[in-house]
Design a protein around this nucleic acid. Structure first.
Lengths: 205, 205
DNA sequence: GTCTATAATTCGATAGAC
DNA sequence: GTCTATCGAATTATAGAC
């Protein structure tokens, strides 16, 4: 174990704990992960966890803030850009999310699971609702360039078509016996197709 | 407490435990729920839980099997019907899932969370992949009636557009400040729109 | 079958040596 | 800073009276 992980011994204990916690909490959530699991994964002593982070809860809050940031903040720049069209925003959103989720596939379930219990922070409240993207969509609907429906549907479709496969990945693995390589190929196919689908969908009616 | 729940005292203790366990496990998962929570929710003594079900784990397995059944088996009849067209199947799938999930909104996150860790049962393996629905889609692609792409994409889109809003509900609540009534209205709108969208999407290219 | 009391284990956290 | 040892609370499970 020591032979292969030369890199890890160069990191500080604090850093090793954070990384172990990030991995385990993001995969399994708060209650399923035991502080001993984190210590083992990090290759450090159990007492160090409390020495550096005071409690399991404090450590979790750090990881949760990190994950929320990664999940939401990566797109606020895109949806509030006043220079780009709806079509351009859709392509950028799809690209950004697919890139990010290919490296952090557990993020959607983590974020959505914990938003069920944790009241969303003021930080993100209305971040979508009041975005320039939403205003563009509402305007397009008024002008008859998009079908008359709840503008939320538009956002749900873009986000859903993009991130749902990551959420449903265990289903694809089991029910469709899809391996990791096939999954990546599927997402690369969807990267091109989703913007085309969105365009076609929005001409309905 | 006793005054209002007259109905509950008519049920057997075993039944009350099952119902409490169903509610709590489905909402919060295995580790977050304590056996005491279940006993309290059921209004029975803690010891009865082990008397009837031997362990927390055995009880959980019952609930998980129930939920898996509800989630998957409700649609096998639809996707294996050799009399209906692709279009009809899409409408039926959307209807069935929306009806079911309006009554069991926690099901998708529960099922997908636990399929991450639990290897899928043989019961469901290949149940989609070998379905008549999949064969119909493959045939339609060959005939050029559907765009040439992975047939999995088709299934992912139908299922994703339908169940993703339930998974993303906490996000809609927080970020879009959407209440329950608005959510139901949204899903009723989508019930009509998703089949139309799917039809439009599949004409791309 | 249902309850009280308690055993057995797990888990988060800390004291204290080095 | 890091470790060993251990405490105290929480939690699952069981023994035994009724």
């Amino acid at each position: 174990m020591k032979t292969a992980k030369t890199k890890k011994s160069e990191e500080s204990a604090e850093q090793k704990i954070i990384e172990a916690a990030r991995k385990l909490f993001t995969e399994k959530g708060f209650d399923s992960v035991k502080t001993r699991d984190i210590a083992n994964e990090a290759g450090i002593n159990l007492a160090l966890l409390n020495y550096y982070f005071r409690s399991k809860e404090k450590l979790f809050e750090i990881i949760m803030a990190e994950n929320m940031q990664k999940f939401f903040m990566s797109i606020v720049g895109i949806i509030n850009n006043e220079e780009t069209s709806i079509k351009e925003k859709v392509q950028q959103l799809v690209d950004r999310y697919i890139d990010m989720l290919l490296h952090n596939p557990e993020l959607p379930i983590f974020v959505l699971s914990h938003m069920k219990t944790t009241p969303g922070r003021a930080e993100f409240q209305g971040r979508f609702k009041e975005s320039y993207f939403m205003k563009q969509i509402q305007k397009a609907i008024k002008k008859g360039k998009l079908p008359s429906m709840s503008p939320v549907n538009f956002m749900v479709n873009v986000v859903g078509l993009t991130i749902f496969p990551f959420i449903g990945r265990p289903m694809l693995k089991n029910i469709h016996s899809m391996d990791d390589k096939q999954f990546v190929a599927l997402m690369e196919e969807r990267r091109k197709l989703i913007p085309e689908w969105i365009e076609a969908m929005m001409k309905v009616k």
